[in-house]
Every structure is written in structure tokens, then in C-alpha cells.
């Protein structure tokens, strides 16, 4: 009776978990699948026949490739800047409460809760009212840094909650000046959190459409290019490039997990040897 009940519970748990995964991964599966399609006409939306042609020539659409490079360049620069500033904000907020820290906390959440369309249009207004930079890669980068900083600061802060600040005291006590303490103690310990935050920031930046749309001028990023092209044609190279980005990030993830497991395994091995 009881075992029957627990079996039913276990089976239905698996079924629901499976349905959840299907829901999450079906779109991704279709992206990859249609990168192997040989479309009839301009739109790669109906399955015709299997081909490797698209993968053998992923960069045939030169405007698409150029847009991808533009996106990668902008996102890399924006991520670097926002990771540095966001992490510093997180460190300052975590270390101790200071005058105005609650105000900064509030301001950090603001870009997340404000509709993107408002952020994008008001930034455009700001850029229109100045003469230092023209619309282009620089304005897109500035716009991306603006919303990325919040994500980085909040992510890093969450990751370093529970950081043992007496470690910094211990380093100072042992004669390390503040920079040395940061370089050899604080930074290596918060690095995983900083990396996680920068990956998230990069992902947000590379697929941003709305804010970019308002501030790009004549610069065309990958999402803008696809949006513009979709009205005329959807080439399968879109799917190929998207799949490449996907596989690249999955590879990073697997590498990260494997190296983590490896060091755990090495530790376990060492422990068993000592005994």
C-alpha cells in the first residue's frame, strides 16, 4: 500500500520533471535541428531535407557574420567594464553598512525593474542631448554597462554573502598591505562569483534588443541584424551561428564542472592515501 503510493509518487515526479525539461529544451532543439535544414526559398521555417551545407559554410552571410562580431566586441568590452564596477559595488555593500548603502541597494534594483523600453528611450534622449559621443558602438556599450552593472553587483553580492571577512583581518594582521590582501586573499576567493556574474552579464548583453535598438545609430548588432533580416529572409546560417554560441557555452559549462569534479576527486584520493 505504502510502497505503491511511493512508487506512484516517484513515477509522477519523474514524468513532471521530464515534461519540464521538454518545455525548456524544445526551442533549443529546434534551433539546432533547423541549422541542418535545406530550406526552399528565403525562410528557414519548414523542414525540407537534411544537409551539412550550412555548417560547412557558416559565414556565407557576410552581413550576419559582421553583426555577430560587432555584438561580440561590444559585449566583451561592456562585460569587462561592468564586471569590474559591479564587483567593486558588491564588495563595498557586503563589507559593512555605510551611510547611504540602503539608497544604493535601492538604486541597484531600479534598472532591473524599469521596463527596458523606458530605459532605452530615455538613454536615447540623453545621448541626443550631448555632443561627446555619436550613436554607435560606444553608446550601445554605455547602455549595456548601465544595466549589466546592476546584475553583476547583485549576483556577486549574493555569491559572497557569508564571506568570512576576518580573513582580510588575518591577512592585515600578518603584515599584508590592503592591495596584497585583496590580490592574494579576497580576490581568489570571490573569483568564482565574479566569473558567474560576468557570464550572466555577457549573456544579457549579447541578446539585448530593445535598449540596443534605441541607441545603436547605424551600428548593427546580431539581434538587430536578425530582426531586420527576418522581414526579408531567414537564412539557416542564423541557426548555425546560434548553435555555435550554444555549443560554446555548453562546452564551457562542462569544462567548469569537470575540473571541479577532478579537484574533488584528487582531494578524496589524497585523503584516502593519508589514512
Amino acid at each position: 500500500m505504502n510502497s505503491l503510493r511511493s512508487r506512484i509518487a516517484r513515477i509522477s515526479l519523474n514524468v513532471f520533471a521530464g515534461l519540464g525539461l521538454v518545455y525548456l529544451f524544445t526551442p533549443i532543439f529546434f534551433i539546432v535541428l533547423f541549422s541542418f535544414n535545406k530550406p526552399k526559398g528565403n525562410y528557414n521555417i519548414v523542414w525540407q531535407e537534411f544537409t551539412f551545407d550550412n555548417w560547412l559554410d557558416p559565414f556565407s552571410q557576410s552581413s550576419l557574420t559582421a553583426a555577430l562580431w560587432t555584438s561580440l566586441r561590444i559585449s566583451a568590452a561592456a562585460t569587462l567594464i561592468s564586471t569590474i564596477f559591479g564587483s567593486l559595488i558588491a564588495l563595498a555593500l557586503s563589507r559593512r553598512a555605510f551611510k547611504g548603502s540602503s539608497v544604493i541597494n535601492l538604486l541597484l534594483v531600479l534598472p532591473l525593474t524599469t521596463p527596458e523600453i523606458v530605459l532605452g528611450s530615455s538613454l536615447a534622449t540623453l545621448f541626443l542631448n550631448q555632443t561627446f559621443v555619436d550613436f554607435g558602438s560606444i553608446t550601445v556599450m554605455i547602455a549595456h554597462v548601465m544595466f549589466q552593472v546592476s546584475f553583476v553587483a547583485l549576483t556577486v553580492r549574493a555569491r559572497i554573502r557569508g564571506f568570512d571577512w576576518t580573513l582580510e583581518q588575518a591577512a592585515a594582521d600578518l603584515g599584508a598591505k590592503p592591495w596584497r590582501t585583496f590580490r592574494y586573499v579576497t580576490f581568489p576567493l570571490i573569483l568564482p562569483g565574479v566569473l558567474a556574474a560576468s557570464l550572466l552579464a555577457f549573456a544579457l548583453s549579447i541578446d539585448d534588443f530593445i535598449i540596443t535598438f534605441f541607441n545603436s545609430g547605424s551600428t548593427v548588432t546580431f539581434p538587430l541584424q536578425i530582426y531586420g533580416a527576418a522581414r526579408v529572409r531567414i537564412p539557416p546560417q542564423i541557426n548555425v551561428l546560434a548553435s555555435m554560441v550554444l555549443f560554446f557555452s555548453v562546452a564551457l559549462l562542462v569544462l567548469g564542472t569537470l575540473s571541479g569534479q577532478r579537484s574533488e576527486a584528487v582531494k578524496a584520493l589524497k585523503r584516502s592515501k593519508d589514512k
Binding site: T166, L167, Q169, A170, D173, L174, A176, Y184, L189
Partner: peptide, 29 residues
């Protein structure tokens, strides 16, 4: 400041640097 005082502290929860080996912990000073 503490880093210019010639006293050293053993902290209550030890505050050992978790990412360093025992040797590197001791060699830090």
C-alpha cells in the same frame, strides 16, 4: 594600522585562507 604592528593574532575561528595549502598559509606573513 595592523599590518605595521609587530603582533600577530590567532583568531577564534582560525581564519585560515581556505584556498591556500598549510605551507602557503604559514608563509603568507
Amino acid at each position: 594600522p595592523p599590518y605595521r604592528r609587530n603582533v600577530n593574532t590567532v583568531f577564534q575561528q582560525y581564519a585560515l585562507f581556505p584556498h591556500m595549502s598549510v605551507f602557503d598559509n604559514v608563509a603568507f606573513g
